[in-house]
Design a protein around this nucleic acid. Sequence first.
DNA 1: CTCAAGCAGGCATGAACGGGCATCGGCGTG
DNA 2: CACGCCGATGCCCGTTCATGCCTGCTTGAG
Lengths: 253, 253
Amino acid sequence: MYAPERQQEILRLARDGGRVDVVSLAEEFQVTAETIRRDLKALDRAGLIRRVHGGAIPAGRLDFEPDLAERESTAADEKDRIARAALAELPAEGTVILDAGSTVARMAAAIPPEATLTVVTHSLPIAARLADHPGIQLHIVGGRVRHRTRAAVDAWALRAYGEIRADVAVVAANGFSVEHGLTTPDLAEAAVKRAALTAARRVVLLADSSKYAQEHFARFGALGDVDLLITDTGLTPEDAGDIERAGTEVVRA
Amino acid sequence: MYAPERQQEILRLARDGGRVDVVSLAEEFQVTAETIRRDLKALDRAGLIRRVHGGAIPAGRLDFEPDLAERESTAADEKDRIARAALAELPAEGTVILDAGSTVARMAAAIPPEATLTVVTHSLPIAARLADHPGIQLHIVGGRVRHRTRAAVDAWALRAYGEIRADVAVVAANGFSVEHGLTTPDLAEAAVKRAALTAARRVVLLADSSKYAQEHFARFGALGDVDLLITDTGLTPEDAGDIERAGTEVVRA
DNA sequence: CTCAAGCAGGCATGAACGGGCATCGGCGTG
DNA sequence: CACGCCGATGCCCGTTCATGCCTGCTTGAG
């Protein structure tokens, strides 16, 4: 049996039964658990199933995001400190653009209940969290929703950001460096990020130190476009100095 | 049972019953209270429930106008039947507009994983549910988000619906009658609903029978704008007859 | 104010995971 | 036909995850 056939069959089993688990699939198909894990990983990347510890569940069956809890594992501590530091950069009253990204989402979740802000975002998870915040006037930016990031992109999003001016934009990047600026893997998402930071008077970048010197496919701005970078202590003082000389204030939380 | 499955189930229990408590959940799922607490913490972080001493209560109400958990439980059975019947009205492939509303949300949650559709919605809860559905190309309509209904309204939303054409619009109403048409309490929301149904070739209204002969502040269309009404058996055959004579097909699920 | 119930955090453990490396077999190229 | 490449699979081992247990702290009902 070829791998794609097996994967197809796994998908069918997952949808029929609502769940599959690694060990019984391994028995079923007479292969090792590693192979099954690889299959599940492939199906997960394709967005067809959702991986869980010990097996998988067909996509769309959960109406919440396990990865919001999962992601916390990766550099959770740093992200938390960054998120808390970023709160101080929000204006007391005014308009804020929030980019998609787990660190930004954490910051959004930590906005105190008594805050009064106007928030504009193209991130579905962030919007969901802020939707019942009594003091926040929330605006969602429309567009095609990318499955992976649950962020709105394309024409509607670009136009919406082109029509507004905000006091602060809080953005995330998958990679940043003095030479190559701000990068992310997806072109459409990069375009929206670019529109978002253009729409704000002040740009705050949240990025843990593992993103430093990383480059990804799509560039959406120069480091010089960023007024303030909030990162963690994993960024060396020398690197921080380089960035500050380029005109971006650096906070190492 | 996987942790996310358990969490999903806890969420369902919380929404159904309006509350859950740690010890009975621990018994129910045959795990220790610590595990349940971790689950509740995860759900709390995701913003879906609110933690209280000894248990939790649902927070993410994907609910409609007037009240909170009361509505969700009221007529839950009818709404489920209506939602299931509505599934049959979705095209096999094509574009669908989904209005905000708990019955529509139930239908959205029941869309099978193998469906391939383009969905446009201004409802945050519905978007959240469909965001990781592999076969669905999701578009969110932007706008100001109303806290009550978590639906986008105002200029961005109206313009977006003005720019598209869909095969079917599935809409909800707080009140409907032959004389006064389709009504809802909020003007801004009514405007969006009107735009949504204008953008579709075929309009399906989901409304349980308690909505019949109700009138609310803002009118967004005539019953004649609706091609098909799906309701429950609480609507008398005579009333159904009246409606059908006005040109709207009626299904009593 | 008291105190049992509930809670957070630390620690232990077994299962699950993932990356690196070796092997195998098919397939195209020369 | 021989060779080498590459994808698929299996194996190994250090790491992470989910869960349970324990301990000391917090909470809130009486």
